[in-house]
Design a protein around this nucleic acid. Structure first.
Lengths: 223, 223
DNA sequence: TTACTTAATTTTGCATTCAAAATTATGTCA
DNA sequence: TGACATAATTTTGAATGCAAAATTAAGTAA
């Protein structure tokens, strides 16, 4: 009568592993926002005791992914339109900075890698493979962020990104918006190749603002 | 029935209390950077068990204030010049954003409050009361941040601010730098009163860059 | 029924306990 | 003495236990 574990946990500390797994569950929508998440249930699911689980929840609460109410436990933080309108400007500022720094520090090899990703993404776009498109899209933004050579920036960005990624993932783009996003990505690549930091910064900021519109429209429609 | 009148007795969790207290200890320099901090010692100092203490340490590690090495415990994160050069650009981007948003949303009353703080600060400057000057200075920046009406922005900024506040607090300014900082604050107030967001953003960014120079010079000298 | 108590159950916050890893101390032999 | 191996101690990671708070269930009177 073995409790079936999703996968054995042995690598790092349980705590770290749990943070990562819970984050995935939340982003992928396996845990619905607003839903109460009893510790016991989570512990049974991952076959760990409450101690490391509670540590993980504290960290996630700090990152804004879950909400901890004293003596009343954890719930997945619901992302509202208001939240998005708070988070996106901050992400915009961070992305703009990442663009500026990246242009200063990126190597030719890295630019080539981004270019390759860009064309891969175009392929997914033409074939209308949305999930693949998303994946490659994220890879491009991550590559730019990494090129900025600033771990503080990366981690701050990632933290915010996690909060909205679920909504971003679920929100379907209209054909029109998709076209626009791809066009913007052409500009992004061009600015990067020209190493024009301020321009890349501005484009990234605008790109994100368009994403916000997509997501918040979806959120208004689908709660 | 007024909800605000019968505000319940604040029953804070030990965990939250510890996060705050440890943060103070670190910022005020009671715990020296690099120093190993055995859990047991901390627990005895605050008279709590290891469970809430460990939870607090995890959160602080997440915020970058302490470093957790697996099976080897916690140590206060040492702030290096490289760290500062990573953190300050990010803070700069956030402060610039706070300036822009604040100009859009700040009320006349709040501007008056900032003005009052500004003149209070000038008094401390003229009397060369550095600690009071610092305190008022921080209050001004906090007021601007609050005026931006963006909790995400505030908390991200605070997190980074905590990481460098210790160094910032200890670093003594030369007379020249101090003069310059005060001059910049005149510009800050002027831009705020003119509600010129982009200008305020730029000034705040430059102001922070100057602070970085002060702090990193001190850090190079005093490790 | 419905509103209101009050008892039973569950869930959380924290302390304690136990095992594994790391650190320090001790002993041996060249 | 010093280099190395091994035992004792300390410290960390995680599980369990226990009391307080909250939630749910049950009962009682209008």
């Amino acid at each position: 009568m073995n409790v079936r574990m999703d996968e054995p946990i042995m690598r790092r500390s349980l705590h770290d592993e749990l943070v990562e797994r819970l984050q995935r569950l939340i982003i992928e929508g396996a845990l619905t926002p607003g839903e109460k998440v009893p510790e016991k249930e989570l512990c049974e699911r991952f076959n760990v005791s409450r101690t490391p689980m509670r540590e993980a929840l504290k960290v996630l609460a700090n990152a804004g992914l879950v909400t901890l109410t004293p003596n009343r436990g954890a719930s997945v933080t619901a992302v509202t339109v208001e939240d998005l309108e708070e988070v996106f400007p901050v992400m915009g500022a961070l992305e703009a900075l990442s663009g500026e720094l990246a242009c200063e520090k990126i190597t030719d090899t890295e630019i080539a890698a981004v270019r390759a990703l860009h064309h891969e993404m175009l392929g997914h776009y033409r074939a209308q493979r949305l999930p693949d498109y998303f994946k490659t899209n994220e890879a491009i933004h991550t590559a730019i962020l990494n090129a900025a050579r600033n771990d503080t920036l990366s981690s701050q960005h990632q933290m915010l990104s996690a909060r909205v990624r679920r909504a971003r993932y679920l929100a379907n783009m209209t054909r029109e918006r998709w076209d626009k996003a791809v066009a913007e990505h052409e500009d992004i690549l061009a600015a990067l190749e020209a190493r024009d930091g301020p321009r890349l910064g501005k484009i990234l900021k605008r790109h994100l603002r368009n994403k916000l519109e997509t997501v918040s429209e979806w959120l208004k429609a689908n709660g």
